[in-house]
């Protein structure tokens, strides 16, 4: 398995709409994952205000001792972030690819309600394929 611990998607108001963990490291229960999601949403907003650079779009990468957190925000305010091993490569590409899958298999699905938790079989299938180790390396080319 790739060095990814978990993947989150949060809607524009900070609600967790998708959570998936990979492997045993950093596993969390539902409450913790919701907490991380809303905490990240606020921190992201605060970082935009605090940044000395004008036009800052918020934190993209948080580096800690035991993990890295990569974040990608789409134009509509949906945030995708992944918690992974320190120093893991190609995460920006992975997040962009997850965004692509989201636009295809979630937004084009007539049974999905905007801003609600994602329950789409095709999204799950394609995401699992994308997160597999060699696939991540492939995306990094």
């Amino acid at each position: 398995m790739a060095a990814i611990y978990s993947l989150y998607i949060i809607n524009k108001s900070g609600g967790l709409i998708y959570y998936k963990d990979y492997g045993s490291a950093g596993r969390m229960d539902t409450n913790d994952s919701l907490r991380v999601a809303s905490l990240w949403h606020s921190m992201h907003a605060i970082s935009q205000q605090l940044s000395p650079v004008s036009g800052c779009l918020g934190i993209e990468l948080l580096q800690a001792d035991t993990f890295d957190l990569h974040c990608f925000q789409s134009l509509t305010g949906t945030k995708f972030f992944v918690v992974c091993e320190p120093g893991a490569q190609h995460m920006e590409n992975l997040l962009k690819f997850v965004y692509e899958l989201y636009t295809d298999y979630v937004l084009k699905n007539p049974f999905y309600e905007m801003e609600m938790p994602i329950r789409c079989e095709l999204f799950d299938i394609n995401l699992t394929q994308a997160v597999q180790k060699d696939r991540v390396a492939f995306l990094g080319r």
Binding site: D104, Y105, N109, F111, R119, E121, F123
Partner: peptide
């Protein structure tokens, strides 16, 4: 191609 049928809709097919 992009449609996942929710479980509660049973055998419905677009």
């Amino acid at each position: 191609k992009f449609i996942s049928i929710p479980k509660d809709m049973g055998t419905f097919n677009c």
